[in-house]
Design a binder for these strands. Structure first.
Length: 759
RNA sequence: UGGCCCAUCGUCUAAUGGCAGGACAACCGGUUUUGGUCCGGUCGGUCGGGGUUCGAAUCCCUGUGGGCCAGCCA
């Protein structure tokens, strides 16, 4: 895997000695097939486990007995194996129903969960909205004993569905809707395909998922962005019920595509609609369909790897998938000849019964593979209908009346005559061949192009299925029928060269000039040869050819934000805060800093305490707002390993010019790490600023002499390199160089062509 | 309207606060018995406004835009 924010995180954790083994899990809902959008999740979870020498548990999330489908359980395993991954255990959330139930009981016992008897609608009403807090259920204060008894009776099936639910007791006013007493268990009188009729209560995803992770010892639970809000309940439950080390959930952006429907909601009806053949119809975005179409797992892995793992919502470019498919096939698919739309051509000067066997390499010179086969050549040929034009457009490099082309691996031919039937329909071509042109171009003749062909007597009949994207529009929506393209499948009847009869059925070919194909694994064997087109060749020929796939409907790039103007920060302050603001302003803080402090009492208190110790108000406010605020987002100020006094001392060191601000930030890091007070850190690590001009000068000279070519480039105008030189000097001096001084000397030395004798 | 998350070439994605780079696409050229491949080149970007800093894509504030959350789905 390429490095990404997940692998970097794990690298850090491993360096810190946090893990003995990395364990991930892949948790499909056994309902619906895996599709290309899942490929990211599969490659990430399995790739991380593989790269770090850990393992993956394949765990089917079968917490809902009404939707789980055993057919999908098998199909999903096959898809993952096909992608090239293996797991350590195949597990089911239902394996943990007993443990999960016991944990729910424990939660009730400690007063962290209760049985609620509100109706479904009431629960919804009580939950409030995203902008208004919810209200507590009257049953929330029910005794643990009563909840315990009710929950047990729920389990035994004594109540109707919906009569009661088990909820966590958290906070009905939480700004995160998910934390408003989330439902943990619901009554479902539904047999489960693995546990039968043993249970009448089933856990919700939010309950089962984190706890299953914890039970299994999963270290990294990687899921898609839409579960970000669920992380809070994940952490709450795991902290409540488990001791560290515990699993953590991380979210990444899942794959999105244009011209494809990928939600289960849309895919399932499509699979069953008759519009396509089913889940594995080669036009579907499922992995089963891609597999049947002939796409290689390596191409999909490469595609996912090139996209990368991030938290940015994005739409994947089909062009990249096409590229990785072609790139893989180009190196692995032998070239053979096939004609999809046959046009007969008779060579009038070639003897009737004669058949030549021409040696034809399977690979072009640029692909480092060897091997060749014999290609029969005869008087009667099939050419590609699209390779002949009676009225060729400019730039035509194929056959036309009177023109001469190369038959690939064979002779030059010229079209002498066009034969038509009574209706004027093109019937066949009369051509003549040049017997001296095998393997050589006769001197003095420019041959524009080469076309593919087949000797009619030995050509094998075959069916070709040419697939195009299913949907014309970038974001298809139901009703699906209207958006589905009728041209998404074209069936042609033509021929292939006889050599393919000897090949393994899984061989992927390049039919020269047509695209990559393989035999359809479902319909080929008994019926005859049926080839799926995996993908076309890239083509730069466009005149009169296929329509470019540019989308006029495609929206433009990101919209520029309108020229913005920040509102006055003071306007939002309360009267009391405004008083503080006035006080801070009098201290000559900037307007923004004064307003920020006035509106943040924790920060303001810290600031005022620091001010009581030493330092100028303006620099102190500067450091509090620009540096301390960042750490305050992670650690509450009260839990800092240092206090306002130490912070004030740090700022004073900068003000006294003893420390560069760069070094001061390093010192702050040290203080955060609990290394002691600023003076101690400065002494221990030798951070004292170097402001001695001659000392700096010698360092700078060294840096410039070590990078003569950079100096040259700088003098040619790439002034951005100043940052590079500054960085080098800082590195040399361990960040202690006085930056203003350094910059001044650096600029002076760079401007004029250095010392005499130099260069 | 509350909370959380996200924002870099057309697209996807890199860049311990120190040279904004790569890939795909597009375009131009070269090689070619595939209008393929390969090779060379061109075009093109840090969402806006303030601030911190010698230096900001990166840190702080703010605006804008997008995603997710009000299932007894996952």
């Amino acid at each position: 895997m390429r490095p990404n924010f997940i692998t970097k995180l794990i690298d850090g954790e491993i360096a810190a000695g946090l893990h003995s083994e990395i364990v991930t899990r892949f948790p499909p809902d056994p309902n619906g097939f895996l599709h290309i959008g899942h490929a990211m999740a599969v490659c990430l979870n399995f790739g991380v486990a593989r790269d770090y020498g850990g393992y993956v548990n394949l765990r089917f999330d079968d917490t809902n007995p009404t939707t789980a489908d055993p057919v999908c359980v098998e199909a999903i395993q096959e898809d993952i194996r096909w992608l090239g991954y293996s797991w350590k255990n195949v597990l089911f959330a239902s394996d943990y129903f007993d443990e999960l139930y016991a944990m729910a009981v424990r939660l009730i016992e400690v007063g962290k969960a209760y049985v609620d008897s509100l109706s479904e609608e009431e629960i919804r009403e009580y939950r409030g909205t995203v902008t208004e807090p919810g209200r507590e259920s009257p049953y929330r204060s029910r005794s643990a004993a009563e909840s315990l008894e009710l929950f047990d009776r729920m389990r035994r099936g004594e109540f109707a569905e919906g009569a009661h639910v088990l909820r966590a007791k958290i906070d009905m006013a939480s700004p995160n809707m998910i934390m408003r007493d989330p439902i943990l268990y619901r009554i479902l009188h539904e047999p489960h395909y693995r546990t039968g009729d043993r249970w009448h209560v089933y856990p919700m995803y939010d309950f089962a998922h984190p706890l299953s992770d914890a039970i299994e010892g999963v270290t990294h639970s990687l899921c898609s962005l839409e579960f970000e809000n669920n992380r809070e309940i994940y952490d709450w439950l795991v902290d409540e019920l488990f001791e560290p080390p515990r699993p953590h959930q991380y979210e990444f952006a899942r794959l999105n595509f244009e011209h494809a429907v990928m939600s289960k909601r849309l895919l399932t009806p499509l699979a069953k609609s008759g519009l396509v053949e089913g889940w594995d119809d080669p036009r579907m975005p499922t992995l089963a369909a891609l597999r049947r179409r002939g796409v290689t797992p390596a191409a999909i892995r490469e595609f996912v790897d090139r996209l990368g793992v991030t938290k940015t919502n994005s739409v994947a470019d089909l062009g990249l998938l096409e590229y990785t498919i072609r790139d893989d096939l180009n190196r692995h698919a032998p070239r053979v000849l096939a004609v999809t739309r046959p046009l007969r051509a008779v060579l009038s000067n070639y003897p009737g019964g004669k058949v030549e066997r021409l040696a034809a390499p399977y690979w072009p010179p640029d692909v480092p593979n060897r091997g060749s086969r014999e290609l029969p050549f005869a008087r009667e040929l099939y050419l590609e209908r699209d390779d002949f034009s009676e009225d060729p457009p400019p730039g035509w490099r194929r056959l036309s009346p009177g023109a001469e082309v190369r038959l690939r691996h064979a002779y030059l031919i010229r079209c002498d005559e066009v034969v038509r039937d009574e209706e004027g329909e093109l019937l066949e071509l009369r051509c003549s061949y040049d017997p001296d042109s095998l393997g050589v171009n006769p001197p003095g003749r420019r041959i524009a192009g080469a076309i593919h062909w087949l000797a009619a007597p030995s050509a094998l009949p075959a069916e070709f299925r040419l697939y195009d994207r299913l949907f014309r529009v970038p974001s298809p929506d139901p009703p699906l029928g209207g958006d589905a393209s009728r041209e998404s499948l074209t069936v042609c009847h033509g021929f292939v060269e006889p050599s393919v009869a000897h090949d393994s059925a899984e061989t992927r070919y390049q039919f020269e000039r047509l695209g990559y194909f393989w035999r359809d694994p479902k319909s080929s064997a008994p019926v005859g040869l049926v080839f799926n087109r995996i993908i076309t060749l890239r083509s730069s020929w466009n005149a009169g050819g296929e329509v470019r796939r540019d989308d006029p409907t495609k929206s433009g790039g990101a919209q520029a934000s309108p020229p913005g103007e920040a509102p006055d920060p003071v306007a939002a302050l309360t009267a009391e805060q405004r008083a503080s603001f006035e006080r801070y302003s009098a201290l000559e803080l900037s307007r923004n800093e004064a307003a920020l402090l006035a509106g943040n009492s924790d920060l303001a208190n810290f600031f005022e305490e620091a001010l009581a110790h030493q330092g100028s108000p303006a620099s102190l406010a500067n450091w509090v707002v620009n540096e301390l605020l960042r750490v305050a987002k992670v650690i509450p100020l009260s839990e800092l390993p240092f206090g306002p006094a130490e912070f004030a001392r740090l700022v004073a060191l900068v003000d006294d010019n003893a420390l560069s601000s760069r070094a001061a930030k390093e010192v702050l890091k040290g203080m955060l790490a609990g290394e002691g007070d600023p003076d101690a850190i400065v002494a221990a690590r030798g951070f004292t600023q170097v402001s001695d001009a001659s000392a700096l000068e010698s360092v700078i000279t060294r840096v410039l002499e070590a990078n003569p070519e950079k100096v040259e480039v700088f003098r040619q105008g790439k002034t951005g390199l100043l940052g590079f030189f500054m960085g080098q000097v800082m590195r040399e001096t361990g960040g202690k160089a006085n930056p203003q001084l350094t910059r001044g000397i650096l600029e002076a030395k760079l401007r004029r062509p250095a010392t005499p004798g130099d260069r």
